[in-house]
Design a protein around this nucleic acid. Sequence first.
DNA 1: ATATCAGTTTAGAATGATTCTAATGTATTG
DNA 2: CAATACATTAGAATCATTCTAAACTGATAT
Lengths: 130, 130
Amino acid sequence: MKDIKHFLRQNSLRPTKQRVIIANYLFDGINKHVTAETLSNELLKMKAGISLATIYNTLHDFYEKGLLKKLMINSERIYFDTNTEHHHHFYSKKDQKLIDINVDMKVSGLPKPPKNKKINKIEVLVHLDN
Amino acid sequence: MKDIKHFLRQNSLRPTKQRVIIANYLFDGINKHVTAETLSNELLKMKAGISLATIYNTLHDFYEKGLLKKLMINSERIYFDTNTEHHHHFYSKKDQKLIDINVDMKVSGLPKPPKNKKINKIEVLVHLDN
DNA sequence: ATATCAGTTTAGAATGATTCTAATGTATTG
DNA sequence: CAATACATTAGAATCATTCTAAACTGATAT
């Protein structure tokens, strides 16, 4: 991402110091899965003194603007994904780690959705053993 | 379930008053998705004075014995499923409701799992729009 | 039956992720 | 550069869940 400030403005987000730092980290071209906690740790490493409250606010602001996806992986914390394309995941419970599946997969044999309901999207989570 | 006490004993669970009540409710032949909260509400309706702590304990005990499945649906609470067969779900965020998909589905185009990892199971969650 | 003891239940405290509050700070607009 | 709308923050509050430790109960041996 060359011009983060411009990028934030384009998404109706004021380019504050904190948002610039966080956006620079998140949108550096490498897709990431973060939680408030892991992001906080990264920011601590780079000595950006950003409060936890701001980290939560920013993740949600980015999510509201569609810059992040929320993942429903487990009930212990919320995962945010910088890859907002439709895609699937491997999940290793042991490592508490997610890996993107970027190839196209097809699900066949799907039954009709209940009356008056339409399918929005299909998410496949492939659990790994070890 | 005719003999709940026997059923509990078979699963190395002492048939206490509370467990019998909860098992009777959960394993009445109709598959259910419950959270500690929804289960607590049901039990309140039937005036079973069972503490929340016991509800949590019991759900986990049943889970440990493989009588319930844990579902990772959202990050707000833990869902338990009385259907322990491998199956998939429709999920309506709006209704906060899960519907079992009991037909066989196939996922094709799956990439190889990462080195030294083996696929344990594949979970498909079909998000509904409305 | 009864005593014993391991396994259970429970109220209430503790925890941990997240959200809220309200005071202070800062980007934007005119 | 003043005004103001939006952001940040520390710390309190919230909420689901887990823990603690005391009281209780089902199973087993006597």
